[in-house]
């Protein structure tokens, strides 16, 4: 578990006043987490208990809301499947595009590759609204509106710059000596790639994929603007609770829990590995 990693790092030892600070840290941790905990709790209540002016902490839990959220006709599985397909699809396409590009940039750098890398990262900062209208119009004329393919490609474009950068920085961590040793040992480009570079970069590739997965799963702008039903993801599903149905708090909570649980848990395990990509390698 990643958490133990941090415990080994020496910080200020808890001294005088340490107990108070420890208590404060725990209190803040719990407070930050409380809304998530509260949703989980509400999801286990009946609608009557959930919707009351005085919150209830002790009650007999029921899975009724989950049952109805997962029931036939609620559509959860349809949206979840779309989320899975678009998130995993965009991650795989992204890795397939990013790995060769990062390989060229990391191991055969030139002015041109440096420029390309900076250019790629800079496209990350074109806000989605900046390309929304043309993408919408072109998608409409190509029949890509409300398709998983169309959405997957948008997620890929959204994540590709970060993925290239992350894979690049992991590749760059491989000592050049090892690549040279492989070439002296008789390995060609492909053999070096598959027998030396990829195995060494595997943890890095995994965290790149994880980050892309999380970002794509939580994406809502493109899902809300480019899909209706066929390709609609869980973001669209939960957004549908924003009016009217929002009165059924237990069901809303159950749906929310089902939407965020996979990614929050994934995030717990990947927190350390994500930091580096998110800071463009400034922190290791």
């Amino acid at each position: 578990m990643t958490a133990s990693n941090a415990d080994r790092t020496p910080g200020r030892k808890a001294g005088s006043g340490g107990t108070a600070l420890t208590l404060l840290a725990w209190l803040i941790g719990i407070a930050m987490f409380f809304p998530i905990f509260w949703v989980v709790l509400t999801a286990l209540k009946t609608e009557q208990t959930a919707f009351s002016m005085t919150p209830t902490f002790i009650f007999s839990p029921t899975l009724e809301s989950f049952r109805s959220a997962l029931a036939q006709g609620s559509g959860y599985w349809h949206y979840a499947l779309n989320s899975v397909i678009t998130a995993f699809g965009s991650t795989l396409v992204g890795l397939a595009l990013a790995i060769p590009a990062a390989y060229a940039m990391a191991f055969f750098p030139s002015r041109r590759t440096d420029f390309t890398l900076v250019w790629m990262v800079s496209t990350k900062f074109i806000p989605a609204v900046g390309v929304l209208i043309p993408v919408f119009l072109v998608y409409r004329s190509l029949g890509l509106i409300d398709t998983r393919l169309g959405l997957t490609m948008l997620f890929t474009a959204m994540n590709l710059p970060i993925m290239v950068w992350m894979v690049y920085s992991y590749f760059r961590d491989i000592p050049i000596d090892i690549i040279e040793a492989a070439s002296i040992d008789g390995a060609g480009t492909a053999q070096t790639m598959f027998r030396v570079i990829l195995p060494l970069a595997l943890p890095g590739l995994a965290s790149t994929g994880l980050l892309a997965l999380i970002l794509a799963w939580n994406e809502s702008f493109w899902s809300l603007t480019m899909t209706d039903y066929h390709a609609a993801t869980l973001a669209v599903y939960t957004a549908s609770f924003k009016s009217g149905e929002g009165l059924f708090w237990a069901r809303l909570s159950a749906a929310s829990v089902l939407t965020i649980a996979p990614i929050v848990v994934l995030g717990w395990f990947a927190q350390r590995q994500m930091v580096r990509g998110l800071t463009f390698g400034a922190v290791k």
């Binding site: 578990m1 990643t2 958490a3 133990s4 941090a6 415990d7 020496p10 910080g11 200020r12 030892k13 808890a14 340490g18 600070l21 420890t22 840290a25 725990w26 803040i28 941790g29 719990i30 930050m32 987490f33 809304p35 998530i36 509260w38 949703v39 999380i214 799963w217 939580n218 809502s220 869980l234 973001a235 939960t238 957004a239 609770f241 924003k242 929002g246 809303l252 929310s256 939407t259 965020i260 990614i263 929050v264 994934l266 995030g267 717990w268 927190q271």
Partner: peptide
């Protein structure tokens, strides 16, 4: 950044909101 009992868990709790889908954040 101090060493204390259960730091890993407390920290994991504290950073959890970052992984919550923004739409769900809005609804909660």
């Amino acid at each position: 950044n101090r060493t204390f009992v259960g730091r890993g868990i407390a920290r994991t709790l504290a950073i959890s909101p970052f992984f919550v889908m923004p739409v769900v954040t809005g609804l909660i």
